[in-house]
Computed example of a mutant assay.
Amino acid sequence: MTTKPMLITGWVLSGAFALFMLGASVAPKLMMMPVAEETMAQLGWPAGFTLMIGVLELACVLLYLIPRTSLLGAVLMMAILGGAMASQIRVGNPLFSHILFSLYLGLVMWGGLWLRNARLRALFPVERGA
């Protein structure tokens, strides 16, 4: 794949990740929607943490979308996704649909960043077949 198609694909994956996070996670938390508080309560989070987590998620998504801070945003977002995974494990939710969902999101996020960032591709090259 040449550089331009990789860049476009990377931005499409990054945009899809960002839109999903903004629509499915950040917006409900920042708008204090009942579904966000209920979901957090089901995961064992005390009331009052929803807004703070939404702000942190928003900050990480914005950092991820800015090319100069994208690596920092990805690392910080992975920390949030790891915490989400730990919360799912703690309450005993199903493996493939709930627990590993953070991993799926992380793979899309890192895949998009890898495709749009030449320095990251140089750091983690993909070996071609012999």
Rank of each mutant, 00 (worst) to 15 (best):
68 R>V: 14
54 G>Y: 03
85 M>I: 13
14 S>T: 12
94 P>A: 12
49 F>P: 00
104 Y>P: 04
113 L>S: 05
93 N>E: 13
111 G>S: 08
43 L>G: 03
34 P>Y: 08
30 L>K: 03
1 M>F: 13
114 W>H: 09
18 A>P: 06
92 G>H: 12
107 L>W: 09
71 L>N: 06
129 G>V: 15
2 T>M: 09
45 W>N: 12
111 G>R: 03
33 M>L: 15
129 G>C: 14
102 S>N: 14
122 A>L: 11
23 G>C: 04
117 N>V: 04
68 R>N: 07
62 L>N: 01
29 K>F: 09
59 A>F: 10
1 M>N: 06
36 A>W: 05
16 A>D: 04
9 T>W: 10
95 L>A: 09
33 M>I: 07
63 L>F: 09
122 A>D: 14
128 R>D: 07
26 V>K: 01
70 S>H: 12
26 V>H: 07
19 L>F: 11
104 Y>R: 02
5 P>R: 00
103 L>D: 04
124 F>C: 08
68 R>K: 14
32 M>Q: 15
38 E>K: 08
32 M>N: 13
52 M>K: 00
60 C>V: 07
100 L>K: 01
84 A>E: 02
3 T>K: 02
53 I>Q: 01
24 A>E: 03
94 P>R: 02
69 T>N: 07
55 V>D: 05
22 L>Y: 05
117 N>D: 15
106 G>T: 10
70 S>L: 07
106 G>I: 11
9 T>E: 03
24 A>D: 02
13 L>D: 02
38 E>L: 11
56 L>K: 00
74 A>Y: 09
74 A>C: 04
47 A>Q: 14
28 P>R: 02
109 M>F: 11
119 R>Q: 15
11 W>T: 04
64 Y>L: 12
130 A>C: 09
16 A>R: 00
6 M>V: 01
100 L>I: 13
126 V>E: 00
39 T>M: 11
117 N>I: 04
111 G>E: 11
84 A>D: 02
119 R>I: 11
2 T>S: 13
51 L>C: 05
32 M>A: 15
58 L>S: 04
91 V>G: 03
80 I>W: 07
102 S>L: 07
28 P>W: 10
11 W>P: 08
83 G>K: 03
108 V>C: 06
47 A>D: 14
120 L>M: 11
94 P>C: 09
59 A>T: 07
43 L>N: 00
81 L>A: 04
70 S>C: 10
122 A>V: 07
124 F>A: 12
83 G>P: 10
82 G>D: 10
107 L>I: 14
34 P>M: 06
110 W>V: 07
6 M>S: 09
23 G>M: 10
119 R>K: 14
54 G>L: 04
3 T>G: 01
